[in-house]
């Protein structure tokens, strides 16, 4: 059951920002509601105004160009089925296909997912490997922030109360990149997520740049530069040789807490396990193996 609120349906970002500026803490942006309405039903959030951003022009658009732009109100379902996403970043479509369940995907949005900064989110982790930036608009203007700066902690972002998350921009990997996203966990939301992209050097047989992000384990997802460095320049055929070191570096980089998802040391150990597995999958993809995707219990491989 929800408490009463006023519903605003601005058609432009300017209008939406004006409302946010005017209503201050009494207002929250609203899109799919899959997170917001849950918290409101529990009485944990009691906004008096909801600003529906789904009708804001352009917010439901997926566009390409130098970068791939996902409007804040694009649903997971739209990401999953978008030809543009399929062309520029097929892995993103595959990850979107496994977010929560079909009903949440039909309604939940990319913007809502990022703006809530739930630590147990798939998208933010993957986006870190796509050099994601978010676009924030307000009456004061526009700014673009790297996703790493936007997500500050668990349920905490850099969005000011009068700002609106307008879109997220991704830099698709160069062609020939082998990538995977693996998540693991028994509960409704994942215990850990590993996103790994191996971009090939010009010569093709070696990893040019590697990107590895770990999510869900810490309060916010993060890239693991130490592990990425271990992968740079490694021949595709020899990736297995560095798997142990990469996994160790990733495990050393996280700082989990004990909770229902598991103890800190278990989660740290699982980071190592799934980084190793992700590397093996990505390496196989880099080699062009067409073997069926690996399967692990309680895990999803995208």
């Amino acid at each position: 059951m929800l408490r009463p609120f006023a519903l605003h349906r601005p058609g432009t970002a300017e209008e939406a920002c004006g409302l946010l500026a005017r209503l201050g803490d009494d207002a929250v942006p609203y899109a799919g509601g899959t997170e917001l309405l849950l918290l409101m039903k529990l009485g944990l959030l009691r906004p008096r105004h909801l600003i529906d951003v789904k009708r804001v022009a352009g917010f439901d658009a997926i566009t390409d160009g130098a970068r791939l732009t996902l409007g804040a109100a694009v649903t997971h379902r739209a990401v999953e089925r978008s030809p543009l996403v399929g062309r520029h970043c097929a892995l993103l479509a595959a990850v979107a296909r496994h977010v929560a369940n079909v009903r949440v995907r039909n309604v939940g949005t990319v913007g809502g997912n990022l703006a809530f900064a739930d630590p147990h989110s798939d998208l933010a982790t993957l986006f870190l490997t796509l050099d994601a930036t978010v676009e924030l608009v307000s009456g004061r203007g526009r700014r673009e922030l790297p996703l790493t700066d936007f997500v500050r902690g668990a349920w905490e972002t850099a969005r000011a109360p009068d700002e609106l998350l307008a879109s997220v921009r991704l830099t698709p990997w160069p062609s020939g990149t082998a990538a995977t996203y693996v998540k693991f966990g028994v509960h409704e939301r994942p215990t850990l997520g590993v996103a790994l992209a191996l971009c090939r050097a010009a010569a093709g047989a070696r990893v040019g740049e590697a990107r590895l992000a770990i999510g869900c384990v810490d309060a916010r997802p993060a890239r693991v530069p130490a592990a990425e460095a271990r992968l740079t320049g490694v021949a595709v055929a020899e990736l297995e040789d560095v798997a142990g070191a990469v996994a160790e570096a990733a495990a050393a980089a996280v700082d989990p807490a004990d909770d229902l998802h598991g103890s800190a040391d278990y989660k740290r150990a699982m980071v190592a396990v799934f980084v190793r597995r992700a590397l093996r999958i990505a390496a196989a993809r880099a080699r062009g193996d067409v073997a069926p995707a690996a399967r692990f219990p309680h895990a999803v491989v995208a």
């Binding site: 693991f184 396990v273 692990f296 219990p297 309680h298 895990a299």
Partner: peptide
């Protein structure tokens, strides 16, 4: 059993 994760199937 997935010996690395302890997950029993």
């Amino acid at each position: 059993v997935d010996e690395e994760t302890g997950a029993v199937s």
